[in-house]
Design a binder for these strands. Sequence first.
DNA 1: TCTGTTTGCCTTAGAAAATAAAGCAAGATT
DNA 2: AATCTTGCTTTATTTTCTAAGGCAAACAGA
Lengths: 153, 153
Amino acid sequence: MELDRIDRKILSILQEDGRIANVELAERIGLSPTSVGERLKRLQREGFVEGYGARLNPHRLGLGLLVFVEVLLDKTTPENFDRFARAVKLAPEVLECHMVAGGFDYLVKARLADMTAYRRFLGETLLSMPGVRETRTYAVMEEIKRDAPLPVG
Amino acid sequence: MELDRIDRKILSILQEDGRIANVELAERIGLSPTSVGERLKRLQREGFVEGYGARLNPHRLGLGLLVFVEVLLDKTTPENFDRFARAVKLAPEVLECHMVAGGFDYLVKARLADMTAYRRFLGETLLSMPGVRETRTYAVMEEIKRDAPLPVG
DNA sequence: TCTGTTTGCCTTAGAAAATAAAGCAAGATT
DNA sequence: AATCTTGCTTTATTTTCTAAGGCAAACAGA
């Protein structure tokens, strides 16, 4: 399944402004609203578009601290991996968690109110997770680039 | 400026489904469309909602490889920081870049087609950026949790 | 306590947008 | 050459958004 120039333009615009009216989207593309709507429906059906979301300001919501945590597990058995994965999915502070190849097992991205909240999170959530041996925390001092759109062009 | 239970519910729903019709949003909240619309406009005006975006599937777009790169700068002067920041903002492969406190200077998150593309990106973009001394790459093997909504409850 | 004001919600009506149907033309297929 | 498919357009109906006006409860000051 191939994307043409128009499909990419639709995706690009929608990634920046997911709530744009179909009429206006069609104007910017240079097609009728109907055909743009059909293309979009196809892009959703084919799985290019997974959904839409509001972009919230974390600081405004009292989540002033962004941290990355490198996590090493005790014994890297399948059950340990699985239990850790399940625990991470339940923790609302954790925005992302990736299993990586290299010096550690998981990279966790979390947002919290402040360092006090982080201390609690580290002790009560991360370190009490099954099989966690070691963690290294990196606090973000400045967000240079935040959630850039995927390159579709 | 305080958020009540209804505001939080609006933010929560909108974060998951940013394209929901105001009528349906109002139904799920239990208020009239007008008053939900007014609340939402206020939440946007006050900066809680920064915008809306389509969630695209990176794999479907041929971006099968997710990497995190730790970057160390040569001399940590303000100009070097600034030049690096500007260069990073221009690179479309870079989705996030954070200045961190700890063992290195920057943590970069990037999506690429494959390892070949990453090699090129590393050489032509990252290593040729001003003042970059050392990089450590961590390739993601499995995405356990991806872009979870911010906890607003 | 009484009065005026604000706040947050509702209903209603007019404007705008989404959706579905029908048709048309260019290119592919047999 | 005739038919089918594809992708677009226009039109009409339904749905949604938006702005106006009004009501009642909470609040402030005299």
